[in-house]
Design a protein around this nucleic acid. Structure first.
Lengths: 339, 339
DNA sequence: AATGCTCTTTAAACCGGTTTAGACGGGAGT
DNA sequence: ACTCCCGTCTAAACCGGTTTAAAGAGCATT
């Protein structure tokens, strides 16, 4: 571990000034081709890589993007979205010499996370995930002057481009699948209504039923956690006229609901059909396999990273990007209702 | 968003030199108390926060730690360890103005991740997770001059402190629990033998059985994924003398195995007892609830972060830290063997 | 021979901190 | 009155890049 070479070492070796090396490295015009070659050769021989720290200081960029997630195990742990999303983000960043900085904050104090990232100037932009209705973080980011992309489209005004994945077609497909099987008493376990994607799913659910001239048996509000899924399921099964099918807003609640139904002595899908959302790893392997909706969070991450980079590079009005909608995966947990 | 104040602004306002401001900020001796107060007051009025970038450059520190994880969904997605571990790490870092930098790499090319973190000088140290036998990354980190802590103790020589959580007591407890229930035909679905924690669990399994004068029905090798858990379970159930209990090396395989057993027409726990490892969120809510072993990955993260910080701060020979062992959580998936 | 005009290249300032060597002023010691 | 010393404080170098203003070289014009 001898000290790494600096730009001055390269300049000396190539017999030019520091400035010329910088020009050559960044491919700026005004240098003779011969000189450029000489400099690049020298840099190569020394194995020189420009220091990120020095570059950061002089060009006022962090070469990093930030993601704030809440510590709440409900959102963080065993949520299949984030790991794959992060992998997608990284697949873009790692090819560009950028890094991903994570901030994990206590539930409810996400603002602090963004504030820290901004004050410490750790990142050039951030991803705004788990978008809420009238999300206060949008104002905050404007105030902080932090570029961003939103995952989903906010309902208010937003200066940031949005990367969206329409949850509705998937939900519609699930409901239609159940209708085709002959179900008429269908219930929904939604996510917290504060979240944009939670209400998108629940309104799509209600509207699709309405389109078939039906009303939901009930729409219970869960919190995307397994525990919440259990409770909501208990409430639904305790109804005087319990549903013959339940559509959950995510797989964790669905798998937990599956367990609750079985624990209550029901056979899935004979007595009760169950559907989830996400197609998490376990969905395929629980018994019976879970009918669900598959999105592509990896691609979501890739796209969000690319979009955010355009914003960071000063590209004004980057267009919103719409990802292909999630599609239905039919497994064994759904069948015709009991006769 | 007017430009943020610099140290020069503070110096001017306080009527002192830049150097004095720096001294005051870092609490170094040699300044009159009155001057310190004056400087701090000025800094406060301007809302000055020293620039991380400038500090990074002059003190040659990144004020960040790094974590490399593989993109392989097997390790990344729905693994309950990392999210909670990361949360624990962050709970320490966020109070110290440090950041966590994530590198997600393709499976098998983790070396590139560490190399990038080192070359870009993004971090002051890294966590070495999923430790393998004769792990080549240890040599790599030495070569890169990157401080580290290992999660688990490597079997070879290592210059890095280890934070360990002994998996054996938990495994022993599971096996003894099954023995007490009367099982004698017990099988194990292990993780890939390349991993230190996988073999720790499997040898503890074998040894505990041996202590009771028994041999395992079989030890199948899984890969910690749900799909691998299914396959291993199929192989075990196809044996001429199938086991009456299966101990899995993690919950994902166990939950998948539970599904496979149920799909094969078995009733758990009446026909077959099943136990996992991790106590992931869903373990409690599948049907029947999964008997498993609970570790504390959040605390693991906290401890690892604190330990790594000591190394980064130049503290030579930081001692290894041993976390309290994981303990058994008995649920409904284990019972006496069929008569 | 002087002027003008490209085309290259360099010196130096700059980013915003930290750190070192030394300047300055006042009180004690002789 | 002259040193010496100590406590304070500052100027300037430094970290390793980028960027700007200007210098220098070469050539064609007049």
């Amino acid at each position: 571990m001898t000290k790494r070479p600096t730009i001055a070492d390269v300049a000396r070796r190539a017999g030019v000034s520091k400035g010329s090396v910088s020009f050559a490295l960044n491919g700026r015009p005004g240098l003779a081709q011969a000189t450029v070659d000489k400099i690049l050769a020298a840099a190569d021989e020394l194995g020189w890589r420009p220091s990120n720290r020095a570059r950061s200081l002089s060009v006022s960029k962090a070469f990093a993007l930030g993601l704030v997630i809440t510590r709440d195990p409900a959102v963080l742990s065993s949520d299949p979205f984030f790991p794959a999303f992060i992998a997608g983000v990284e697949s873009v960043l790692s090819t560009q010499g950028q890094a991903l900085v994570l901030q994990v904050v206590a539930d409810g104090s996400e603002a602090d996370g963004y504030r820290r990232l901004a004050q410490d100037a750790r990142v050039d932009g951030v991803f705004l995930s788990d978008l809420r209705h009238d999300d206060p973080r949008i104002e905050l980011l404007i105030e902080l002057g932090l570029p961003a992309v939103t995952l989903n489209r906010p309902d208010g005004e937003s200066p940031f481009p949005a990367v969206t994945l329409d949850d509705r077609p998937g939900t519609v497909a699930v409901v239609e699948h159940l209708l085709e099987l002959g179900h008429t008493r269908i219930a929904h376990v939604a996510g917290p209504p504060a979240f944009v994607h939670a209400t998108a799913r629940s309104t799509a659910f209600v509207e699709t039923l309405a389109g078939a001239g039906l009303k939901p048996v009930a729409v219970e509000t869960g919190d995307f956690t397994a525990a919440g899924g259990i409770e909501a399921t208990h409430r639904l099964l305790a109804l005087p006229q319990p549903p013959t099918a339940i559509v959950y807003a995510n797989d964790r609640m669905a798998i937990a609901g599956l367990g609750a139904a079985q624990a209550a002595g029901l056979t899935v899908p004979d007595d009760l059909s169950i559907a989830g959302f996400d197609d998490s790893e376990l969905a395929e392997y629980v018994h019976p396999g879970l009918t669900t909706v598959r999105a592509d969070p990896f691609r979501f991450g890739e796209t969000a990273a690319r979009t955010l980079n355009r914003v960071v590079d000063g590209d004004t009005d980057v267009p919103d990007v719409e990802l292909p909608p999630a599609d239905l995966v039919v497994r064994r947990s759904t069948a015709a209702p009991p006769a």
